[in-house]
Design a protein around this nucleic acid. Structure first.
Lengths: 252, 252
DNA sequence: ACATTACATGCAGAAACGTGCAACAATGGG
DNA sequence: CCCATTGTTGCACGTTTCTGCATGTAATGT
């Protein structure tokens, strides 16, 4: 990340959020707090920001848009997302399904991680515009409002032209016998197409989905490499899944 | 690799990614960092790039700031967008290019209007999730951070499978002789592919773009149905354009 | 009052920079 | 055809700039 670029980023952040917290920015960008402080000092010298203890504020505190606040995912989702993000190796490609947990994964990708993200979710594509190094490949198709992702024939066809090391998919049901399930047939087909293009498929399964099943099957256990969940390790259902030869990663 | 070719490559890269890192470009092209630095120095002398430590940035980094994308468009853009939205007939399909003005068009579509929106901008796709009736078809491809749209070979290919009544495109230059121009060759090709799939092509041209030209031509006037602008009707350039047989719609 | 956090300063390693120089290719007379 | 000139490219060198860590100090909060 270029120094000048970082300064632009700070100004954009200030315009968007109305304030800058040095510590948070440093963590978000993966740089030291010293650099942020130096940048803020310089920007303040140019009169572009107002330096305050702990960060900076806009010079004219009048016009602040708090509307565009990014909503923060709940803790459980964030923990699952953090583990999932850890599966993405530098230089590799990852297929990201839609849904809020997958979005959390995108936001959890370390800023310095160079990787390719393949997704059929425009929401995730937009979220990753902020990411300094991630390359995004968007799978097109008809966009469905309720799930906010592209699927259907065109999207499935587009998926045939990509491949990746890892695929991270979200489902509505995770059941020992039924496997992974979801509530819509087209959606199931799309997820299946995505999983087929990756060497390993991991499922993002927050605790409340464990043990439930929906109408349409996405994948049988045989085609799943692992499940990432925040459920308890001694959960009966989880143990049954483990018995199917599926790796279970716990996001404690 | 020719020197001039290299310079074009740098300008394209800057338009696509929003930044140039000297070290990375040198590695990617297999040339020395010195050559890249020399090119950047020359381009900066011509005012085409802004030289910074480690690479270069666009001359006006504010033009496509992601923060600005999210906030409300200025009045002039909103007026242009309103006129453009009026071109979309109920039940018809419209191809929407990327950019802030096109986003404003998406936001200006009346909620009760049933239409199909075809776009290569994930930002617009997300914005239209709110729209109750609009059907969105997303064109996939590699997503470029700086312009926040998908283009490249895959996106152009995806565009071949759609068609629409109207195409609304944004450009960086609108010039009587040069026609419509933009700063990146790939981007120009994408816009061209979009325009080719619609019966009528209209250009979103806020006043400041009138009379300017960039390096790469998108379309000649013969292939443009009309221009939507907030420039003055008696503007000399506008009158020249009208003389080319192009309809000019004023967003007063 | 005390612990915690933020800050400034100094320092060292790393990275980027500019300059000069030599090798090389292209152009243009002679 | 040959040679000189010009311009470009990559390398080597010393210099400047940046960055993160460590230290000590100031500000804040409990």
């Amino acid at each position: 990340m270029l120094a000048a670029e970082r300064r632009d980023h700070l100004l954009g952040l200030l315009a968007r959020e109305g304030k800058i917290v040095a510590k948070d920015v440093a963590a978000a960008l993966g740089i030291s707090e010293d650099s942020v402080r130096r940048d803020l000092r310089d920007l303040a010298a140019e009169g572009l920001v107002q330096r305050v203890y702990g960060g900076a504020l806009p010079v004219s505190p009048a016009v602040v848009d708090y509307a565009a606040r990014q909503t923060v995912a709940p803790d459980s989702k964030r923990r699952v997302a953090a583990v999932a993000a850890g599966l993405v190796r530098p230089g590799s490609a990852v297929i990201l399904d839609g849904g809020t947990t997958a979005l959390a994964v995108a936001q959890a990708l370390p800023p310095e991680l160079e990787c390719t993200v393949i997704t059929h979710s425009p929401t995730i594509a937009v979220a990753l515009l902020d990411h300094p190094t991630a390359e995004v490949f968007l799978l097109g198709g008809r966009v469905f409002k309720h799930s906010a992702v592209a699927y259907g024939a065109a999207a499935v066809e587009a998926a045939q032209n990509v491949s990746a090391e890892v695929c991270l998919i979200g489902v509505t049901g995770v059941h020992p016998e039924a496997g992974l399930t979801t509530g819509d047939a087209e959606e199931a087909a799309m997820k299946r197409a995505l999983a087929a293009r990756a060497a390993d498929t991991y499922v993002l399964a927050s605790a409340e989905k464990i043990g439930t099943a929906s109408r349409y099957r996405v994948l049988p256990w045989a085609e799943v490499s692992g499940v990432i969940t925040d459920a308890a390790p001694d959960d009966a259902v989880v143990e049954q899944v483990t018995g199917q030869g599926v790796e279970v990663l716990f996001a404690g």
